[in-house]
Amino acid sequence: MTTSINTLDIQIACSDESGLPSAENMQLWVDTALSIYSKDAELTIRIVDSDESQQLNHQYRDKNKPTNVLSFPFEAPDGVELSLLGDLVICADVVKAEASEQNKPLTAHWAHMIIHGCLHLLGYDHIREVDAEEMEALEVKLLASLNINNPYITD
């Protein structure tokens, strides 16, 4: 069995770095998410403030508010083979607020957002109910492998 190599570029572009996960944790979560992918992969995680998240969410999704994670899959031109999966843009402010509102450990919510974003880069989505159920089940399984509780169970 060959082991895939996942190369992670981390960009910290937020003013408040408190509560951010370590590079080691981010790499672990990426590796966990991409354990279902059999190729080498490169991706960037950019951690941003609300302003940048809102601008990108408005520009690319026509939603004028910040969001937790945006996924930008890389689409190689025909005939070009690259291991680049794409970029994740994660809003630190939103992740922190959601974890607090949902009474979840901040680290667990970060893990969920990174795994969720990676699955989007692999082509999973949650637009249709059947796709959402498949994606959520996979997230729950991957998070459980890290001893993180099901994020979809609410008290």
Results as ranks from 00 to 15, higher is better:
Met1His: 12
Thr2Met: 07
Ser4Ile: 04
Ser4Lys: 06
Thr7Cys: 05
Thr7Arg: 08
Asp9Thr: 15
Asp9Arg: 10
Ala13Val: 03
Ala13Lys: 12
Cys14His: 03
Ser15Asn: 11
Asp16Leu: 07
Gly19Met: 03
Leu20Lys: 02
Leu20Val: 08
Glu24His: 07
Asn25Ser: 10
Asn25Glu: 07
Met26Arg: 08
Met26Trp: 04
Leu28Asp: 07
Ala33Ser: 10
Leu34Lys: 05
Leu34Phe: 13
Leu34Gln: 04
Ile36Gly: 05
Ile36Thr: 15
Ser38Asn: 14
Ser38Thr: 10
Lys39Pro: 00
Lys39Gly: 01
Ala41Thr: 04
Glu42Met: 05
Leu43Asn: 06
Thr44Asp: 11
Arg46Ala: 14
Ile47Arg: 06
Asp51Tyr: 08
Asp51Thr: 14
Glu52Met: 13
Glu52Asn: 04
Glu52Val: 13
Ser53His: 02
Ser53Lys: 09
His58Ile: 01
His58Thr: 12
Asp62Ser: 12
Lys63Glu: 14
Lys63Arg: 12
Lys65Gly: 01
Pro66Ile: 06
Pro66Thr: 06
Thr67Ile: 13
Thr67Met: 04
Val69Tyr: 04
Leu70Ala: 01
Ser71Trp: 09
Ser71Ala: 15
Phe72Cys: 03
Pro73Gly: 00
Pro73Met: 01
Phe74Leu: 07
Phe74Asp: 02
Ala76Ile: 06
Asp78Lys: 14
Val80Asn: 07
Glu81Ala: 11
Glu81Thr: 12
Glu81Gln: 10
Leu82Gln: 09
Leu82Cys: 08
Leu85Gly: 02
Gly86Asn: 00
Gly86Trp: 03
Gly86Asp: 00
Gly86Gln: 06
Asp87Ala: 07
Val89Ser: 02
Val89Leu: 02
Ile90Pro: 03
Ile90Glu: 00
Ile90Ala: 00
Ala92Cys: 08
Ala92Asn: 12
Ala92Val: 08
Asp93Ser: 03
Val94Phe: 01
Val94Gly: 01
Val94Gln: 09
Val95Asn: 00
Ala97Met: 12
Ala99Leu: 09
Ser100Phe: 12
Glu101Cys: 09
Gln102Thr: 05
Gln102Tyr: 12
Asn103Ala: 14
Pro105Lys: 13
Pro105Glu: 13
Pro105Cys: 02
Leu106Gln: 03
Thr107Asn: 11
Ala108Pro: 04
Trp110Asn: 04
Trp110Met: 01
His116Ile: 10
Gly117Thr: 07
Gly117Gln: 02
Cys118Lys: 08
Cys118Tyr: 06
Leu119Gly: 00
His120Glu: 02
Leu122Glu: 06
Gly123Leu: 03
Tyr124Pro: 04
Tyr124Gly: 01
Asp125Val: 01
Arg128Cys: 05
Glu129Pro: 08
Glu129Ser: 10
Val130Tyr: 10
Asp131Lys: 15
Asp131Cys: 14
Ala132Ser: 11
Glu133Leu: 09
Glu133Gln: 13
Met135Ile: 05
Ala137Asn: 14
Ala137Gln: 11
Glu139Trp: 00
Leu142Glu: 05
Ala144Asn: 13
Ala144Glu: 12
Ala144Gln: 10
Ser145Met: 11
Leu146Phe: 01
Asn147His: 15
Asn149Gln: 15
Asn150Leu: 05
Asn150Glu: 05
Pro151Leu: 05
Tyr152Lys: 00
Tyr152Met: 01
Thr154Trp: 10
